[in-house]
Design a protein around this nucleic acid. Structure first.
Length: 556
RNA sequence: UGUCCUAUGGUGUAAUGGCAACACACCUGGUUUUGGUCCAGGCAUUCAAGGUUCGAGUCCUUGUAGGACAACCA
């Protein structure tokens, strides 16, 4: 019997394992290469866990490299959020963060080398004209009339491109490969384009910028990345990736593709997430409903739960859609172990105990976490008037399987006494305003000698010492399983109008007044909640519901 | 009418030619001062058809289905 239940290796682990065993590599180097044009989301978390996890597992290192070759879309604010998110997830990159923009001079040299080998040329045509010559996936393209310029002329033209002698879009550097290639990416792909834009790091030093295909793989090589992991859509780029390595005669990094993460009821496109932010559909990139790492953090997810989720999701090459319930399971699993149990009433209704002495308050001990004895206990006030959940009382009991309060029924007040409902008051609208009960003095939690059995247990908060609080309940942002998967409908049409519910008159137990940002609690019988980092003020916490408790209540 | 990738329960991932496993979801039942947790059980003969083999989810062939690829984006 082995004490470690070995998980079998996924295909990338197997490749690395073989490379190490065969001696191809002594150690591995991976990288996480985000473009700083948006916030990281749960899909990126999968890639982060993969790359950093592999290095940790096989004893290698991981570079964090910003793929910043498109100055018009990128920004330092994104750089900072990405840095914070990776750190928060618990990963450490090797030395300092790296930037593709730091390689611009080297990359320029690579382009010159290609020109000198007769493998790149400057094309004077417009994007539109080039597009018509490109052919289609089923038809070959035709050569550009500028394809056979002399090496000297190409060198001169490319140099002038760098000097800013030409207008944007008027000229472009292309690799000379094969316009008839069955792979579109091999039909003389673009290497360098002219762009008079200020770059967030290099400022106005450059007016030409390398394309992804002439930057990403080359950066991998320069950093001697052994295994360059990317998502499936780059599969068709691999022949070009390898062609450039071969002809540039640089370090042969190996690109391996895996399937990206998809979650149902959510969108993962940075462009679409940006639209939600720009249209103020959400509170920002870190809105608790966003699938961004910062959104999940604000919602109350723990890094551990996200890492576990990514682990459970697996690595393979087939397209997949993960059920959000798996993500929810992962947070519940972690929070169940670490979150202190507290009581809070979201929709308060007053309950008066007829036979409890007026003006009396007693402190009752209650356990902080039944899953973890070391978390100890605390005392909560109890008195004649308490708040209970509106949904825990019904004017008439619906039947045998109803364990809550109704006239004549008996329930245990969690950590306190057993009470029997004697009656209630309602207003002219038929809404219950007060519930009346008798309590059994000898049924006190921990020293119950009443002999009364009560199937139902409800949570409560004593009125006099209750803290008024705001609680925000979140639901899925979209009502459709695949909001961006419909042909004729825009994803915005599937927005869930009830994705946010703000409750401003909640009654919380006194200890919650001092709750601080980042703390996660289980509001008993309701779910897990955490203090909002943006809306809370000292002494006045605003709580976000991270996730409800699993509801196993079957009616009937 | 091209090239490449993929096909195992409702979902995702295993099984590396030898009794289809694990997790989530769902359904039963038990425990419980949270209708939570926990515990026990249930839920697929692997896209199709041929072939190789003592033996095929796995190898071969041919289909079928899904996905990717024609931004001066990454």
């Amino acid at each position: 019997m082995s004490e470690t239940t070995e998980r079998s290796m996924h295909f990338i682990e197997q490749i690395i394992d073989e490379d190490l065993k065969s001696g191809k590599h002594q150690t591995i180097v991976t990288r996480f290469p985000p473009e700083p044009n948006g916030y990281l989301h749960i899909g990126h978390a999968k890639s982060i866990c993969l790359n950093f996890g592999l290095a940790k597992q096989f004893g290698g290192k991981t570079n964090l490299r910003f793929d910043d070759t498109n100055p018009v879309k990128e920004d330092v604010s994104y750089v900072n959020s990405i840095l914070a998110d990776v750190k928060w997830l618990g990963f450490e990159w090797d030395s300092e963060p790296l930037y593709t923009s730091d390689y611009f001079e080297t990359l320029y040299g690579f382009a010159v080398k290609l020109i000198k080998k007769g493998l790149a040329y400057v094309d004077d045509q417009s994007a539109e004209v080039i597009a018509t010559q490109k052919g289609t996936p089923t038809e070959p393209g035709v050569n550009s009339p500028y394809r056979d310029r002399s090496i000297e002329e190409n060198l001169e033209l490319f140099s002038q491109m760098r000097e800013g002698k030409f207008a944007e879009g008027s000229r472009i550097l292309r690799a000379k490969i094969d316009m008839g290639h069955s792979n579109m990416h091999m039909r003389d792909p673009f290497l360098y384009r002219i762009k008079f834009a200020t770059h967030h790091r290099t400022g106005d030093a450059w007016c030409i910028y390398p394309m992804y295909d002439f930057a990403h793989g080359q950066s991998d090589s320069l950093e001697e990345i052994t295994h360059s992991l990317c998502t499936l859509e780059f599969e068709v780029h691999r022949p070009l990736y390898n062609w450039l390595i071969e002809h540039l005669e640089i370090y042969p990094s190996r690109q391996i593709e895996f399937a990206r993460l998809n979650l149902n009821y959510t969108i993962m496109s940075k462009r679409k997430l940006l639209k939600l932010v720009e249209d103020n559909v959400v509170d920002g990139w870190d809105d608790p409903r966003m699938p961004t790492i910062s959104g999940l953090r604000r919602r109350g997810y723990t890094p551990e739960s996200i890492v576990n989720f990514c682990d459970r999701v697996g690595i393979a090459k087939r397209n997949n859609v993960i059920d959000v319930s798996l993500l929810e399971f992962s947070v519940r699993e972690h929070l169940n172990k670490i979150a202190p149990r507290v009581m809070g009433v979201l929709h308060p209704v007053k309950l008066v105990i007829n036979n409890y002495p007026e003006g009396k308050t007693e402190m009752l001990p209650t356990i902080n976490n039944p899953e973890d004895e070391s978390m100890g206990s605390r005392e909560i006030p109890f008195g004649r008037e308490i708040w209970i959940e509106e949904s825990d009382f019904m004017k008439e009991s619906p039947g045998k399987k109803y364990f809550r309060l109704a006239p004549g029924t008996t329930v245990r007040l969690k950590s306190a006494y057993i009470v029997t409902c004697t009656g209630f008051e309602e207003n002219e609208k038929g809404e219950v305003t007060t519930v009346f009960c008798d309590y059994f003095e000898n049924s006190k939690s921990g020293s119950d000698v009443s002999g009364i059995k009560s199937k139902g247990v409800i949570h409560w908060v004593e009125c006099e010492n209750a803290v008024d609080g705001e609680v925000r309940l979140y639901d899925r942002l979209f009502n459709d399983e695949a909001p961006d998967g419909q042909k004729d409908k825009d994803f915005m049409e599937f927005l869930n109008p009830d994705s946010l519910q703000v409750l401003t008159h909640c009654k919380l137990e006194p200890s919650l007044a001092n709750a601080t940002v980042g703390q996660g609690f289980q509001f008993q019988r309701l779910g897990y909640f955490s203090v909002d980092s943006k809306l809370s003020t000292p002494g006045k916490p605003v709580f976000n519901r991270t996730v409800t408790l699993k509801d196993g209540w079957k009616k009937g």
